[in-house]
Design a protein around this nucleic acid. Structure first.
Lengths: 333, 333
DNA sequence: GCGCTCTACTAGCGCGCTCTAGTCCGAGTA
DNA sequence: TACTCGGACTAGAGCGCGCTAGTAGAGCGC
């Protein structure tokens, strides 16, 4: 920077002004300085900037590698953050890298706020984190913690899915849950409530699972094995999320079970996986872009006014009927 | 930091020493300082650290959201970087966010080197980038650029796959290519060479595609439409990557085409998608962890010795035979 | 007593930038 | 002429650390 200033015959302060695109520099000087900077290959140093400015204007995002819905969210976070003048830093939790570690990395890089996508860390940790930094959680509520919260009305989504299936004549509807995954508890509860509401409490069955393809595959094997033993297949399956639904679908289809003729399958998320099936996966759509925008805005708002209380956004999910759900089969599958 | 120093009755320098875990501080003082820091909630500020140290010891990673193989790579990058004492920053290219932008974000955050996962940017840009920063490219060769390069021997992989299929009796083997995707050109070339080598040059057929599920789905529709018009299905398909293979498989299976009875399908990557099929996807395994480790090591080595010439690592891929490939059908499908 | 080394610790500069509080100059105003 | 005013620009402090060069004091051999 000093080099640029010297070559241009101005002060460093003016170079700074020009690079921040502030008023206070003449047209001509501005152009000259920029040209010289380009020649020298000067680029402002972020670390020094942050240090001097005292603010980083950077948002940290924690996500879990392999969670497709997270990548959909990330795609939505970038533009909104940019619009509001914030930078985004990503940190992934993986098999060998805990969420704590990933978050500490973000904090270490001076993120002013962190957006946690479906965090799975200990509530105590999240609670402590929320009191240390502006924190937004997407999809997972952390009771008592001082963080903003963006999620969809899981209950409504599941309810729509159930109504849809019941309307199609299904009674033997099972639910593969998502274990400790974000939103699972609510979805499970809504499933049970839905079955009761439709007078199907006796048919209710929750198969423990996870938000992964493997979980869907496993469940499919379980159901197929039951059929071997003479038990009927369910006529409809409400999966914990799309990944699980896809795993289930692949395995069932390959075993000769036709979807939706023999079994209807409904997912959750409407991640880009839903289009994997040529007939399209019937699923409950969570608007990733909208959720991302809310998360970013919550973070930024609280950054601008630290006194502000954390908020909660509950977005309405929407059932998207595609090809994997259909009328209940005439005869038992 | 000053607060900690004061409260502990020592100098800032000593606090610094303690936080960097250097020798030169007494056991007792060390513990006291750490305790006080914890009470105050002091955490060293990275920006100031980087600034003072002149080095960030941070590696930037560019990836493309939704590319599953990238997430596999990321999972491998973290531990190796940590082992070598480097931090990792992620930046994603998405639909509305170009690779250039994502890379600039990394550079802006003072990454000393960038690791590009299957970059798709203009060669000119990549070339310029490689002369500005230590750069490692994974899966995509950029001619003349001054960057390290990690990839697998695409030719060998494809060759193994072809030999496997031919051995099973296949002759009508088509290849869905990956467009401008990383490695596609080499795979396409190897496919053509393989067909010639087996005396099947006349049967060779490359269907243009991309490294996405959609591409596999589209191709399936194309092939099914051809069958409608009386043309035979190919007996085997070599897909551009696993995502494409999965899309193809889903669609074919749903259309009643049995895999591998009617058609054999081989993927490429051995991403975690390969296990989506309960029978398992036959695919060419690229060892993501090994590739990630090479990439990190190349970057770090060149950071330590700037004079060092960029290197190239060619890893041997390995055909993994699973359930989607089988003997050629007796009668035309 | 002296010099020596070793451990524990400190003073203070500098990293590359931003920001506040100015200065300077020329045009407009009374 | 004297004055204000606004645009263009500058001086210099300070952001929170790391690092180099140092000091103080204890222990040791002679």
């Amino acid at each position: 920077m000093a080099d640029v200033a010297e070559k241009a015959g101005v002060s460093r302060a003016l170079v700074s002004i020009i690079f921040r695109d502030l008023p206070g520099a003449g047209r001509e000087t501005r152009e000259r300085v920029l040209r010289i900077a380009d020649e020298i290959g000067y680029r402002p140093d972020n670390a020094a900037r942050l240090l001097a400015r005292g603010r980083s204007r950077t948002l940290g995002v924690l996500f879990t590698v392999h969670q497709t819905f997270h990548t959909d969210l990330i795609a939505g976070i970038y533009p909104e953050a940019e619009r509001l003048g914030y930078d985004v830093l990503l940190s992934a939790a993986t098999h060998g890298r805990s969420e704590e570690k990933a978050v500490e990395a973000l904090l270490g890089h001076r993120c002013e706020a962190v957006i946690l996508l479906g965090p799975d860390a200990e509530p105590d940790y999240l609670d402590a984190l929320s009191r240390r930094t502006v924190t937004v959680s997407v999809s997972r509520r952390v009771p008592h913690a001082r963080m903003d919260f963006v999620h969809s009305a899981e209950g409504k989504g599941v309810r729509q899915a159930m109504d849809h299936l019941v309307e199609l004549g299904h009674r033997r509807i099972v639910h593969i849950d998502g274990g400790r995954g974000p939103g699972s508890a609510e979805r499970r509860r809504a499933y049970r409530a839905g079955m009761r509401r439709h007078g199907l409490a006796d048919e209710a069955r929750v198969i423990p699972g996870f938000h992964t393809e493997e979980s869907g595959i496993e469940t499919a094997h379980l159901l197929l094995a039951e059929r071997e033993r003479g038990l009927p297949l369910p006529t409809a399956v409400l999966a914990g999320n799309d990944r699980c639904a896809i795993g289930l679908l692949m395995t069932l289809t390959q075993a000769g079970v036709e979807v939706p003729r023999d079994v209807s399958v409904v997912g959750y998320d409407d991640s880009h996986l839903s289009h994997l099936m040529s007939i399209g996966l019937t699923t409950v759509r969570q608007d990733a872009v909208l959720m991302a925008e809310h998360a970013v805005r919550f973070a930024v708002d609280r950054l601008q006014d630290p006194e502000r209380e954390p908020r909660e956004a509950v977005l309405d999910p929407k059932l998207v009927v595609r090809g994997t759900s259909g009328p209940v089969p005439r005869e038992p599958a």
